[in-house]
């Protein structure tokens, strides 16, 4: 990519990243949440790959990591939900953490934790999808 794209990416990628994190963390207060924020995070990663593109072989070897992040965050989500079977009213997806005051950043019990797990999972999944498409394109060019 050209120098302009690289420079702009260097400036803006951190902002995009922080914005994604903000949307994820405030998921229980404002519109957005895990999915939207995760998509923004994935956008930051994709921008980096597109601007500073690595050779195809290196991308291929990196392809495994998003998949592992995805699995781990989903496992975390399931474990969080399953702990509810043992606590309180003893049902799956029980919201067992203290609820706090409406409008606070730390409130709504488990929901922010679910949002974070979903955010990581969506970011990893969308990054993996786009990475796979980039690799296809690079392979087809040869």
């Amino acid at each position: 990519m050209s120098e302009i794209v690289k420079t702009v990416t260097k400036i803006i990628v951190g902002v995009i990243f922080i914005y994604g994190l903000y949307i994820i963390v405030h998921g229980h207060l404002t519109p957005g949440g895990g999915f939207a924020g995760g998509a923004v995070l994935a956008g930051a990663f994709v921008l980096l790959v597109l601007a500073y593109g690595s050779p195809e072989t290196k991308l291929k070897s990196q392809k495994e990591y998003p998949a592992i992040f995805e699995s781990l965050s989903l496992l975390a989500f399931l474990v969080l939900a399953s702990i509810g079977i043992g606590l309180g009213i003893k049902v799956f997806f029980n919201n067992y953490l203290p609820k706090g005051i409406v409008g606070d950043l730390v409130s709504a019990g488990n929901i922010p934790l679910y949002n974070m797990a979903i955010g990581i999972e969506v970011a990893a999944a969308m990054f993996a999808i786009i990475l796979a498409l980039i690799i296809y394109k690079e392979e087809a060019r040869e």
Binding site: I129, A132, L133, Y136, E139, A140
Partner: peptide, 13 residues
């Protein structure tokens, strides 16, 4: 859509 497009690319190849 991701699934469909990836299959479409494979078919293209």
């Amino acid at each position: 859509n991701a699934m469909l497009l990836s299959i479409a690319i494979r078919l293209y190849r």
